[in-house]
Amino acid sequence: MLDVVTWTVDPAIFTIFTREIRWYGLFFAIGFLLGYQIEDKIFKHDNAPAGWCDKIFIYVVIATVIGSRLGHCLFYGWEYYSAHPLDIFKIWEGGLASHGGAIGIIIALLIYSKRVTHRNPLWAFDRLVIPVALVGALIRTGNLMNHEIFGHPTDLPWGFRFIENLHQWHYLGAEPIFTAPSHPTQIYEAICYIIVFILLMYMYWKRNAGDRPGLIFGVFLIGIFLSRFCIEFLKNNQEDFEENMILNMGQLLSIPFVLAGIYLAIRAMKQPIVSGRIENIKPKQK
């Protein structure tokens, strides 16, 4: 039988001029760098014009940061941020929501498709979500390093004691129960996202799923947000207002994404195959 892990990793790698450089930020950055490399190979495989990958990277980075921050403020902390609107800009204090990031990316790709590719937005969605699944796994690893977003008490042998984060620890009266390990839900989600990433890579490179507009995007939405929906049953609530809810905010926000994914996947399988390769694009005249 495995021993329970007492998680004592320092969230900060080092400190520069009183500012901590955290593992979370490092994993976030690594995710974007790896994502760019994967996306670049995909765009080259589809003969996309030079510059398309650089532009989508810029759109996505900006949309992820803005969308994640606004998602947290609107979905999880509106009561506070509506009274302190300037604090919305204090990203360094923490508070990002993946559903907000997803909405931000969707809006950004609609704009990107209209301004850059002039193609069906599903072309960009199908190709972008492949590395996004990997980025999601790395971000959840960052949550693990931050001792945050973990689960209910468990007697399973792989439980983690997150003793560094008393704010999220399980309380009995006024005393924290240090003897009750928690579900390491960050690891559960990271594993699910890696599985989705591997599946999407297989679909694109081995099954030519990029020629069925919306199929990869649909499978991504189902795999990521259905995993999130299920794992939320094991998580601690992120905000006090969720205590009396049958489904928490993360689950309610996941349902539309799962339904959209099912619709897109079914629709894609019924539509004729359309080559995803970019052909006959002439350079602009200077």
Rank of each mutant, 00 (worst) to 15 (best):
D211E: 12
G223I: 07
A268P: 09
Y171T: 00
Y193L: 04
Y80G: 00
M1R: 06
T154E: 01
I88V: 15
P11G: 02
G210Y: 14
Q238W: 03
F233W: 01
G210C: 13
T8M: 02
P213C: 11
F241C: 01
I107S: 05
I38T: 13
Q251Y: 00
K282V: 14
Q168R: 02
T117L: 10
G250E: 05
T15I: 09
G151Q: 05
V258Q: 11
V135F: 13
A124D: 14
T18V: 12
T64Q: 10
I163H: 01
I103F: 03
E79P: 02
H147Q: 10
G95Y: 13
K55F: 07
F229Y: 14
F150V: 00
K286I: 15
V9G: 03
V60C: 06
C192V: 08
W78G: 01
Q285P: 07
L234K: 00
A50N: 10
I262E: 08
E93S: 12
D126Q: 11
G94D: 02
A29T: 15
E175R: 09
I224R: 03
I106E: 01
N47H: 14
G210Q: 11
G261S: 13
I216T: 14
G77T: 02
W7L: 12
A29I: 15
G173R: 07
T185K: 04
T141N: 10
E39P: 00
L215G: 11
